[in-house]
Amino acid sequence: MSNLTKIGVIGAGNVGAAIVNALVLRNVGKEIILFNRDKDKAVAETMDIDDTIPLLSEMTIKATNDYKDLAKCSIIAVTVGARQKEGETRLELLDRNAGIIKDIIKNLDKYAPNAVLLMVSNPVDILTRVAQEATKRDSNKVFGSGTVLDTSRLRFQVGKELNVNRKNVHVHVIGEHGDSEFAVWSNAIIGSVKLKNFPLPENIKLAQLKKKTMKIVKNRAYEIIQKKGYTNYGVAVAVVKLIQSVIRDEKKIFSVSVKANEEYNLEKGTVLSLPCTIGNQGVEYRLNVTLNKKEKNLLQKASKSLSDAYKEIKA
């Protein structure tokens, strides 16, 4: 599929601007629309990023505060919302952001009804559900960035510990994009060898490897926020990978925020991160992952936590 595609990004904050910059650097799309209520902020960001284009591939970036300019976008990434504060969990952001998302979806249904919507705002799993409930478009066209970055972080750390390329590490982080996320270690494969059978370096036990790598993954965002106040570059590239898979119909598998299949036997309507095939129509196939008893319990716990939080929304 041609990559001469119109892409929208809502929110010119740290994450939204980083996504636009990553789209330009990776040459994804041809026309990018950066929407922000404060148009001057969007203009400033687009001007700054636009200065990189003469050194890269040709594309067009436009700043706007008019939803009409998002018409005919193939995919729109939604990044707006209150910033996560130091020590604040993603779930605590919920009430502050749900009302904002509902208003955005109403406008997108009016001006860009056919676009795939990629939710990035935190807490992403619940706000994806808010967006799915608010929109008139098919639910497969609304999904969240989920644990794509968390999975990437884990694969990198496991590869580092085992001294193998991260691309040969096949393991997914699923559940909540947050404190209750977990790795599906029972299905982990290194190359074509199950992790439990893979030769470990000296003085490293499998239980220690799992605990160490997941601790790094879970604490990473909190550590970055503590030191600089927000995260943006990692999630931006993760989002661009998802956008690319949609507009180029790559059908790659990512752990994204979706409604779980009935086979998981979770709280009805719960949205959380699970492996899916991402293509031109958004979520094209939701995979049924085989879990062991411990992993099933962890997923059910995450589902209940997210469902309970969703029910408390006042916006």
Rank of each mutant, 00 (worst) to 15 (best):
D125A: 15
V173N: 00
R286W: 02
L287P: 06
R153K: 10
S307C: 09
L200R: 08
K110T: 15
D51W: 13
S57H: 13
L274P: 04
D66Y: 12
I75E: 02
V246I: 15
K41N: 05
L93R: 10
L55S: 12
I19M: 03
S257D: 07
K241P: 01
K41P: 02
R155P: 01
K196C: 12
G269R: 10
V24W: 00
Y67L: 14
I174Q: 00
M119L: 15
I204N: 06
E86W: 10
K68C: 10
G282T: 11
V78P: 04
V235C: 05
V258M: 07
H170E: 03
L291T: 06
S145R: 08
L55V: 12
L274E: 01
D308P: 05
N261Q: 13
V283A: 12
K296L: 07
I189S: 04
V240A: 07
R90H: 14
Q281C: 14
V173I: 14
A63H: 08
A236L: 09
R37N: 08
L272S: 06
M119H: 07
Y111L: 11
K106L: 14
P275K: 06
E312Y: 04
V184M: 02
I104M: 10
T277P: 03
S192G: 08
N292W: 12
Y230D: 06
P201S: 12
K110W: 07
D249T: 11
I76L: 12
K311A: 11
S2W: 07
A112M: 09
V184Q: 00
A183E: 00
L25K: 07
A309F: 04
F156H: 04
D109E: 07
R26N: 02
G16T: 08
L242K: 04
I190F: 03
D50G: 15
D150A: 14
N232Y: 05
N163A: 13
C276Q: 06
N203P: 04
T128A: 14
Q300L: 06
E31F: 04
G13A: 10
V158R: 00
A63Y: 06
L117I: 15
M47S: 10
E267S: 15
D138S: 14
P275Q: 08
L70T: 12
S121E: 05
K72W: 10
M1L: 13
K251Q: 09
S2Q: 10
A236E: 00
L25I: 14
D103W: 11
V28S: 01
S257K: 06
E295H: 03
T277Q: 09
I174Y: 00
